[in-house]
Simulated scan of single mutants.
Amino acid sequence: MQDSPNPLSVALVATPGVQEAALLGLTDLFAVANRFAPGRIVATRVDQPVPHRFDVVLFLPSLGGSRGAPDHPLALWARDQHRQGARLCSVCAGAFWLGAAGVLDRRPVTTHWALEDEFRAAFPAARLEPEQILIDDHDIVTAGGLMAWIDLGLFLVGQAGGPALVSQVARHLLVDPSGREQRNYRTFRPNRGHGDAAILAVQTWLETHHPQPVLAEDMAAVAALSGRSFLRRFRAATGLTPSAYLQNLRIEKARGLLERTPTPVAEIGWAVGYADAAAFARVFRQITGVTAGDYRRRFAIA
């Protein structure tokens, strides 16, 4: 592979509390790429605005809770870089900095699934898709969880040197270059701190009654509420309809059984409340992105 006359210049933005592992990891990943294709990527750590224009400006995860603000110098600098043609990228909470830069309205974007509620509240005009590991929207590229810097790094390697270079780097680093989604890893942790005692009683009841045929009327009876009041208060407290909550709870219970036990998949479906194996398979894949068998192969605890 020939030396590139136009290397891809990448600014690795070190915001307050930056995850150093991501910053150093991307630096190493790009260094490996340059072994196979010398001079193809030039990565620079940026702690404060600099006059140089970059091809890519990348905001990394923050372990210190950094979220940025519209008047922060780095957010203003990123906005100016974007206006000059730079591609803006983020990993995990780095998406908050892109939001602060004002570039995410009506744009598809992802971040760590655990930050979904906070992100939606901060940037309601963005089209958040938290189930995705990476979203390429041409001039805005966002990656999901803390370790998704690997996915974004390989994506940028592909932009600089094509799929053959991605394959070389991925094989050298022993990483899978494609095929992951955040929902493969996402866990169901419903809100229990909402302060509605009647709804909390239903949530606690469902933890042991989810294998049974459960209707909204049954939950309303546990809450001692009318049907209409129950539906309104349940959604306000949990963010989900009762049926969606029940499905997510059942699949979360199934995940645990798949991870910890050798119980056959069909029996697990029955144990968490699905009399129809096909229905269990369909819902499991819809929520997790993989089949129950694939999930067990990937996440079973030895």
Rank of each mutant, 00 (worst) to 15 (best):
F155N: 06
A114M: 08
A279L: 14
V202P: 04
D196Q: 09
P7E: 15
A266P: 09
L200G: 09
R232E: 12
A237R: 09
V202D: 11
R282Q: 15
T111Q: 03
T263K: 14
N34W: 03
D55C: 03
T142D: 01
A237E: 11
F230M: 08
P61K: 05
L200D: 13
T291H: 11
G161I: 06
D55I: 08
V202T: 10
V222R: 07
I150C: 02
V109K: 04
T44G: 05
A14T: 15
P190E: 09
A93P: 02
N34R: 06
W97S: 13
R180P: 01
D136Y: 00
Q212G: 02
D117T: 10
T187G: 13
G102H: 03
L23Q: 12
A275R: 15
Q132A: 03
I287W: 09
T15Y: 06
G145N: 01
P177H: 08
G293E: 15
S4E: 15
F30W: 01
R106I: 01
F30Q: 04
R285L: 10
E116L: 01
A78M: 02
D139Q: 06
W149A: 02
V283D: 13
A164Y: 07
P16L: 04
V175W: 05
Q2G: 14
G65C: 02
A143H: 02
A281F: 12
A279D: 11
P7I: 14
L246F: 04
D151L: 00
F230R: 07
H194I: 11
G239V: 12
G161S: 08
N191P: 04
R255I: 03
P7N: 13
A126I: 00
F119S: 01
S62E: 03
H72F: 00
G179A: 10
E217K: 08
E20P: 01
V283G: 11
F36G: 10
W270P: 15
R87L: 10
V103Y: 06
E267L: 14
G158S: 10
S178L: 07
A86P: 05
P16V: 05
E207F: 00
L215V: 07
Q159E: 14
P61E: 09
V10H: 13
V103F: 03
D28G: 06
T261G: 11
P61L: 04
L23F: 02
A126H: 00
S66Y: 10
T44E: 13
V214W: 02
A198Q: 12
E259R: 12
T208E: 04
A101G: 05
A14L: 15
V18R: 09
P211N: 08
L8C: 14
A224Y: 05
A220T: 10
V157Q: 06
R228G: 07
G195P: 11
H172P: 04
P211Y: 03
R285W: 06
A126N: 02
H194C: 09
